[in-house]
């Protein structure tokens, strides 16, 4: 093609332009650069998590005591089994993705369809599992007491098993405090949900339960939570407690410091959003594969590019798993 640019006489030289020193297509290179910047974003989150954890190194919640649910096993203490399962599902969907890429290199459309389908299913199961984890975390299980200083006090029996607020509280039938809803009185004013129990109901019930003591947030030398004696527990509950916490949100957290909940929501939420968008991108490419777009194009590089993103999501989870659940 004729252009207005004068020939420089360097067309066949290295600096003449048009060569690809990295031997990667534009799209693939941009995917790598995106992955680098996204990796730095996640590192920022995880490093901030590390900062907060080092700041509260002697009172950080123990993950085993927070994430110990397994579907259909109610009341069974199953630390980490479910996250481990989720990790497997994600690694396995990564494997099917790389098998799809491999099949794409050999122009085997049927195989690409099959493996991409498995990948999408795996991703969907993972996102669902994460939603389930969130639900358990938000709902909480046993409830706890919050003190004036924002510390969390949990109830345990003599064997160290948790005791729920519901098993302690002596319900006061005469309490006359009802939640103000906007349909009563001034219509535009309402208030937040009242806690299930008042602190006085807990105090009254706790005084009668000689087998229950308080576990504080503070970690002992051995890395376990401190358990107070019966006298200390009674004193603590009388002097410091101001209210009850059930479950977790960004301000209150029955498992320990609210920062733990904040980072949990932010990091797993941001990762879950990545998985969700990964699934959506996979579905788009999946439809294209079925339509035969890449057969016509005679190359499946698009599958390789979304594959890169999908593996990256898996890579991030490996780190989130370690720093949130294991360490």
């Amino acid at each position: 093609m004729d252009t207005a640019v004068a020939k420089t006489g360097t067309e066949d030289k290295t600096w003449g332009g048009g060569n690809e020193p990295l031997k990667a297509s534009y799209g693939k290179m941009m995917m790598w650069f995106f992955i680098v910047s996204d990796a730095l974003t996640f590192s920022g989150f995880l490093a901030a998590y590390g900062f907060s954890r080092f700041k509260f190194i002697d009172s950080w919640p123990i993950a085993d005591q927070v994430f110990n649910h397994f579907p259909f096993l109610h009341g069974v203490d199953a630390p980490m089994y479910y996250v481990a399962l989720m990790t497997f599902i994600l690694i396995f969907s990564s494997v099917t993705m790389v098998l799809a890429v491999d099949a794409g290199h050999h122009m085997k459309q049927k195989k690409v369809i099959f493996y991409m389908f498995l990948t999408i299913i795996g991703g969907a199961i993972f996102v669902g599992s994460q939603a389930w984890e969130w639900k358990n975390f938000i709902k909480g299980e046993y409830g706890a007491i919050e003190t004036k200083g924002g510390q969390i006090l949990q109830f345990v029996d003599t064997d160290g098993h948790r005791v729920a607020l519901a098993d302690i509280a002596i319900f006061d039938a005469h309490k006359n405090r009802v939640q103000h809803e906007n349909k009563n009185g001034i219509w535009y004013e309402n208030e937040a949900t009242l806690p299930t129990y008042t602190i006085d109901e807990i105090r009254k019930g706790f005084a009668k339960r000689n087998d229950v003591v308080i576990r504080t947030q503070v970690l002992t030398e051995k890395g376990e939570k401190t358990i107070l004696s019966r006298e200390e527990s009674l004193k603590r509950l009388q002097n410091d407690a101001i209210g009850i916490v059930e479950g977790a949100n960004l301000v209150h957290n029955e498992y320990g410091t609210p920062l733990f909940a904040n980072f949990f929501f932010f990091i797993t939420g941001f990762h879950g959003f990545h998985v969700l968008s990964g699934v959506i991108i996979n579905i788009i490419i999946f439809i294209n594969v079925i339509l035969g777009t890449y057969e016509k194009r005679k190359n499946y590089e698009m599958v390789e590019k979304v594959g890169l993103y999908w593996h990256f999501v898996d890579l991030v989870w490996v780190f989130v798993f370690t720093f949130f659940y294991l360490v």
Binding site: S52, K55, I57
Partner: peptide, 13 residues
């Protein structure tokens, strides 16, 4: 990043 933040976190502690 990790070096800086963890050092700072330990200091705050």
């Amino acid at each position: 990043l990790i070096f800086i933040l963890l050092t700072e976190g330990d200091y705050v502690f």
